[in-house]
Design a protein around this nucleic acid. Sequence first.
DNA 1: TATACCATGTAACTTGTTACATGATTTG
DNA 2: CAAATCATGTAACAAGTTACATGGTATA
Lengths: 179, 179
Amino acid sequence: MELSATGRVILGMLAIRPQSGYEIKSLVDDSTRFFWAASYGQIYPELHRLADAGLIEGRSRPQGGRKRTVYRLTRGGRRELRAWLERPAEVLELRDEGLLQLFFSGARPEGARDVLEGKRALHVEKLERLREIEPAVKGAGDPFCHMVLRYGIAMSEFSIGWCEQAIDELSEQEKRRAA
Amino acid sequence: MELSATGRVILGMLAIRPQSGYEIKSLVDDSTRFFWAASYGQIYPELHRLADAGLIEGRSRPQGGRKRTVYRLTRGGRRELRAWLERPAEVLELRDEGLLQLFFSGARPEGARDVLEGKRALHVEKLERLREIEPAVKGAGDPFCHMVLRYGIAMSEFSIGWCEQAIDELSEQEKRRAA
DNA sequence: TATACCATGTAACTTGTTACATGATTTG
DNA sequence: CAAATCATGTAACAAGTTACATGGTATA
C-alpha cells in the first residue's frame, strides 16, 4: 500500500473530473465522508506529494483575483488508480460509540434503552444527510456512486430498525420482570 | 469529552471484572475490536493516566515469578463510567475501502464485480470471526454484550446480502447490454 | 528446547483533526 | 457592509499502530 488512503481518495476524485483542492474537500464532504473522510490538513500536503510523484499535475486557473490550482490525473496517476482498484480492499473498520456504550451497559442497565435511542438518533441523522444528497448523486449519473449511496441508505435503515427492535426487546424483558 | 476513547474502553472493561492490561487487550481483541480497537501503545499509558486521576487502582498480583498488575475501578472511576454511559454517543464512523473502490469504479467499470466480491469476502471473514466468539459471549451471560454481538452478526449478514444483490444487478445490466 | 503465551512498557512513526492565518469574491 | 463562500496552506495537537525490548511460564 505505497499510495496513502488520502492519496487514493484524491486520485479517485480527480478521475471524476479535474478540480482544485478546495473542490475535492467539498466533494468528499458530500460523498465519501460517510465511509472515508479527509481534511484540508491531509488534502493539500498530499496534493503536493502526488504532484511530486508525477501522478497528478496542477495548473493555475485563477478565478478573478482569486488564485486557484486545478489538478488532473496524469497517465501514471490513472494507472495507479486503476492498479489500486484491482487490488482487493483490506480496510473495513467501524468506530461506533453507541455500540461501545451498549456493550458496557451491564454497568448501568437502566440506561440501556437511552443508549439504544441515542444510537438510533445517530443513524437517523446520518440517513437524513444521505437522503439530502441523493438527488444530486442520482443526477450526476454515475451508477457506482449511486450504488454506494444506496448502500449507505440501506445500512442506516437497517441499523434504525435493529435499534427499534432491540428497544422493544428491552421493553418486553421489563414487562416480564415486572410480572 | 475529557475522558479519552481508550480510557472509556478501559473503564468499561474493568467494570466487567478487575484485570491486567494484558487481559484488557485480549478481551478487546475478542470483543470490542469490531467496533472499537485499542493497542498496547494506548492501553498501558492510559492505565497509568487513569490511575493518576484516581479512576482506577492497580495492585500487584504476580503469577509465579511473573509480575502482574491487576487494576480495578475506584468509586470515582465507576461514577465516570456511568456518567459517560448517560451522555449521548457522538462518534459513528466507518472506514470501508471496498466502498471507496466501488465509489470510484467509474474509472474501471470492468472491475466493479471483483470489487463487490472483495467487499463481500471481507464481510464474510468478519462474520466468521464473530460467529467464532459467539459461544463464549453467550456463555458469559451478559445480555448487552450478546446484543452487540448479534448486531455485528446481523450487520455482516446484511452487507453480504447487499453485495450479492449488487453483483446480480451488475450481471443483469451486462446481459441487457449484450442483448 | 523451541514455541507460544503471559506481562509490561516505550519509541518512532503515521494518520488525522483542529485551529489558525491569509486574502479574494459573492451574496444578503 | 457583514457574512458566507472560495481558496490555500501550516502548526500544534491528538490518536493510533508497529516494532521492539525485556523477561517469566507453560506446553508440545
